[in-house]
């Protein structure tokens, strides 16, 4: 029973830290220097940072005695101890466990909601009547998707382009959109989006939206750069973006904007077009999925290590002392 309360306290610490650090990360992400702000790997790392910090803090609360010469509970009998060997009942631990249980219920509901979204997205895409483009076998054309182009599918991503947009563009424009969407497929962006949305289930709504929107914007710009580089012509994609915006504007049909599906408003369109026009195309702009992944993993590991091992003893003693006061 007492061990269970300790687990509850660890969960409470994880949720509280992840929640608080998500707020900080969302604010921090707004002040990033331009190069970092436009890097999708940086954005992904920042969006996942609250999970790393929460995990690190939760682990540090129960693990430092093992790291630093064993349990010190005997030497500190004046307050409760956060180690499984000497777990004792405490009302503060019980309260934290109840809060954690509520928080976990909310998080599980959010996870279920994301999984439902995944299912609905798959059902929606399977209902589309898609025909293959004449020259690009990997591009599907759907009349139902008027002015859009999407990459959908977690493990086997598909590219679907709206028939109106496809028919309005010349061959260069079509190649530009195809290259952009192929970059999404190569980067496995739908899968990354799912991971970020699952991670966001333990974060407050506004902060998680800001973090995911930031990553999505950076991912779109990374794919813009990849497309411009593969074509050797940034203007083709810029023109396709404007054409897409024009068709959407003519249709005047509002689309969707929700937690998982960030929207590109006029500012985003301007930002993407001006970015394509201003930034020189170079090999350095090539998006590297493997590099991004390694960067994110290293950043997460570094944060978790720093919080758990280096700051672990202090966090452990601080939490014990605070619990003792309570």
């Amino acid at each position: 029973m007492n061990e269970l309360l300790l687990v509850g306290f660890v969960a409470f610490a994880f949720l509280l830290t992840a929640w608080a650090s998500a707020h900080l990360c969302a604010r921090w992400a707004e002040r990033l220097p331009r190069s970092l702000a436009r890097s999708s790997s940086s954005r992904a790392a920042i969006a996942l940072l609250p999970i790393a910090v929460g995990t690190g803090v939760a682990l540090s609360l129960v693990s430092p005695p093992a790291f630093f010469g064993g349990c010190h509970c005997i030497a500190h009998p004046h307050h409760i101890h956060l180690c499984f060997e000497h777990a004792a009942f405490s009302w503060s631990l019980a309260f934290a466990s109840v809060v954690a249980a509520i928080g976990l219920v909310v998080a599980v509901r959010a996870v279920v909601s994301v999984l439902v979204d995944v299912n609905e997205t798959a059902r929606w895409s399977s209902r589309l009547r898609v025909t293959r483009a004449e020259r690009d076998a990997d591009i599907g054309i759907a009349t139902e998707l008027e002015a859009g182009a999407v990459t959908v599918g977690l493990l086997r991503a598909r590219i679907i382009v709206g028939a109106t947009l496809w028919s309005q563009l010349d061959e260069t424009g079509r190649n530009a959109i195809a290259a952009h969407e192929r970059a999404h497929v190569a980067r496995r962006d739908p899968l990354t989006l799912l991971v970020l949305r699952l991670a966001a289930c333990v974060m407050p709504g506004r902060a998680s939206r800001m973090l995911i929107d930031g990553w999505r914007r950076a991912a779109e710009m990374a794919c813009d750069r990849a497309a411009a580089q593969s074509l050797g012509d940034p203007y083709a994609l810029a023109s396709a973006l404007v054409e897409c915006g024009r068709i959407q504007s003519l249709e005047q049909r509002s689309s969707r904007r929700a937690a998982g599906l960030a929207a590109a408003d006029s500012d985003d369109l301007e930002l993407r077009v001006s970015s394509l026009l201003e930034e020189p195309i170079s090999a350095a702009t090539r998006s590297s999925t493997r590099g991004d992944l390694i960067g994110v993993m290293l950043a997460m590991a570094a944060v978790a290590f720093a919080v758990t091992v280096l700051g672990g003893a202090s966090a452990h003693h601080a939490a014990e002392t605070v619990l003792g006061w309570i």
């Binding site: 915006g245 024009r246 249709e251 969707r256």
Partner: peptide
């Protein structure tokens, strides 16, 4: 269109008509 919270990447999503 796709569901509100679809898990996909959209080339350019629209909220409202843009200023011509």
């Amino acid at each position: 269109g796709p569901p509100e919270s679809a898990v996909l990447m959209a080339f350019l999503d629209s909220v409202e008509s843009r200023d011509p």
